[in-house]
Amino acid sequence: MNVFRLVADLMHLASILILLLKIRKTRSAAGISFKSQLLYLIVFVTRYLDLFTHWVSLYNTAMKVFFIASSGYIVYQMQRRYRATWDPALDTFRIEFLLGGAAVMSLIFHTKFTFLELFWTYSIWLEAVAILPQLFQMSRTGEAETITAHYLFALGAYRGLYVVNWIYRYATEGYWEWIPFLAGMVQTVLYADFFYVYFSRVMRGKKFELP
């Protein structure tokens, strides 16, 4: 554990708490892409299949359980109580390509051809692009609520800080893995436009609006 990873995990935790707060406070999931939320649920379920086979620490297990449970809760609530508050007509990104693309990538680029390892690798590639339906929806509507922008910033910062963590771990431990590094870089690049608008507008107290 190092400071980049710890802050990254806390940002991830914060992002979900902000999203839950947004949905509760506004009593609405408007502006949230259901497809991205569904992809995150798939990401965490496939990544944490080792939950019962590979004990790391109480911290690790608690975080895994929280990420699976909270993403499942959000997907469930968007389908149930908050179904009428978001518009599926705005959420039109074709996620079949992301699901299929991540499958192809994990079959080509992986370290071990085992059940757990392939699913773990799949989750890494899928996470890199899971935000695309959300970004696509925002590019169509051209704006986002401030609290939604904070949610997305915390979520993007999580993987961005993991990239810094991997560079730090290489420098201090000689630990290096290409797959999560490249996937983390892809995700951070996809976020670039969002980060730019977030820093130039939302951090200065303005509404998140695309130029």
């Binding site: 990873r5 995990d9 991830h12 080792d50 590979h54 790391v56 690790n60 975080m63 895994k64 990420f67 370290t111 071990k112 390892e117 773990w120 993991y162 963590n165 000689g174 630990y175 290096w176 893995e177 999560p180």
Partner: peptide, 10 residues
Amino acid sequence: SSPDAAHDEL
């Protein structure tokens, strides 16, 4: 490096 090390991360 062992691939398992990555699984300690979230």
